[in-house]
C-alpha cells in the first residue's frame, strides 16, 4: 500500500486504530441483522476500494466458505427455538437457529472483511505510533523484528544457495532430509544473526540507548482534520453503542425471533451506523472526485 494514498488511512493512526477496534467490536457484540448487514456491506465496499477485485478475488472464496460453514454450524448444533422446520438424525432443526446461523455468518464475514482493510491501512509504523508511548521497549523490539524479518528471509535464500554451491542440496530428498536441511539453514542463520546482533547492540549503545527518559518519536502529526474525524466517528459510534445497550436496537432469536419495532429512532441509529461504516469509503471517494475535478479543470 502506498503511503497515504487512501484518505482515511492518512488520518492519525490513533483515530484509525480506534475506528477499527470499535467497528469490529460493535459488529461482534450486537448481533442485529441490520447492524451486521450494514457493517458487512460497508466492510466489503471499503475492502473492494482498497484492494480492488484483484485483491478480493483471492479472499472471497474462502470467506464465502467460512460464512456458509457458520450458517450451517448453528442449526446443526443449536436446537433451541420454537419453530421446528424438520428433524435431522432425531434433532430438531429450528427456523430460529437457521436465521441465527445466517446472522452469525454475516458477523464472521464482516469481521474478516474489516480485517482485510485493517491489514491494508494499519501498517506496522502506525501501530508503533499508537503504542510507542505506552510500551516503548516492546515497541522498539517490535520495530527491530520488522527490520530483521525481511533481512532474514533474504539471508535464508542466500544460505540455501551457498549450501548448494558446496554440494549440499537443500531442496531435494524425502521430507526428513528436507526438514534436516531446513534446520541447517535456520541454524546457520541463527549463528549469523546472533553474532551480528552484537554490532546492532553496539550501534544502539553508541546512540545512547539505555539512557533514562527515552522519548518515542513518530512521523505522524495530529492535525485538525484528525480531531474532526475522531469527533465525528467517535460520536457516531457512541450513538450506536448507547442505542444498542439501551435497547433501541434489539434482536432476540430464542426462543422466538423478536426484532424491535421499526420505530423512526431505530432507523435513525441504523442511519448513523451506516454513515460510520461507509465513512472511510466516502472519504476516499470524495478525494477521488476532487482529483477528477482537478484533472478536468486543467
Amino acid at each position: 500500500m502506498v503511503r497515504n494514498s487512501d484518505a482515511f488511512g492518512s488520518l492519525h493512526p490513533v483515530v484509525v486504530f480506534g475506528y477499527f477496534v470499535l467497528v469490529v467490536g460493535v459488529s461482534v457484540v450486537f448481533l442485529h441483522p441490520l447492524i451486521l448487514t450494514v457493517s458487512f456491506v460497508g466492510a466489503l465496499a471499503y475492502a473492494f476500494y482498497l484492494v480492488r477485485w484483484a485483491g478480493l478475488r483471492k479472499l472471497l472464496p474462502g470467506l464465502m466458505l467460512l460464512m456458509v460453514i457458520a450458517a450451517l454450524f448453528n442449526p446443526v448444533f443449536n436446537h433451541r427455538g420454537v419453530t421446528t422446520l424438520f428433524y435431522w438424525e432425531d434433532n430438531p432443526i429450528t427456523l430460529e437457529a437457521v436465521v441465527y446461523g445466517w446472522v452469525a455468518a454475516l458477523m464472521v464475514g464482516s469481521v474478516l472483511l474489516w480485517f482485510v482493510s485493517y491489514n491494508q491501512v494499519m501498517t506496522s509504523d502506525k501501530f508503533l505510533c499508537v503504542f510507542g508511548h505506552v510500551v516503548p521497549a516492546l515497541s522498539l523490539t517490535f520495530a527491530m523484528v520488522l527490520r530483521f524479518v525481511p533481512r532474514y528471509l533474504a539471508q535464508a535464500k542466500r544460505i540455501a544457495a551457498a549450501q548448494r554451491g558446496i554440494g549440499r542440496d537443500v531442496a531435494s530428498g524425502n521430507w526428513y532430509a528436507r526438514a534436516r536441511h531446513g534446520a541447517a539453514v535456520l541454524s546457520i542463520m541463527l549463528t549469523w544473526a546472533l553474532e551480528n546482533a552484537v554490532d546492532t547492540s553496539d550501534s544502539m549503545l553508541a546512540r545512547g540507548y539505555g539512557l533514562p527518559g527515552r522519548s518515542a518519536y513518530n512521523d505522524f502529526r495530529w492535525r485538525e482534520r484528525d480531531l474532526m474525524g475522531a469527533l465525528a466517528l467517535g460520536g457516531g459510534l457512541l450513538v450506536v453503542i448507547v442505542a444498542s445497550v439501551a435497547g433501541v436496537l434489539r434482536a432476540e432469536y430464542f426462543p422466538a425471533i423478536e426484532l424491535n419495532p421499526a420505530v423512526p429512532l431505530a432507523w435513525l441509529v441504523i442511519g448513523v451506523w451506516a454513515l460510520v461504516c461507509f465513512a472511510p469509503l466516502l472519504l476516499g471517494l470524495k478525494e477521488e472526485v476532487t482529483w477528477r475535478s482537478f484533472r478536468s479543470n486543467s
Binding site: A197, D202, P212, S215
Partner: peptide, 23 residues
C-alpha cells in the same frame, strides 16, 4: 548490522529518542 529499526525516518530519530528529545 547497525540499522536498528525498519524505517529510514525512525532510524534517523533513534539517537535523539534515546536522549529524550521532544518530538
Amino acid at each position: 548490522n547497525q540499522i536498528v529499526t525498519d524505517k529510514v525516518w525512525h532510524e534517523l530519530a533513534f539517537g535523539l529518542e534515546s536522549l529524550g528529545t521532544p518530538s
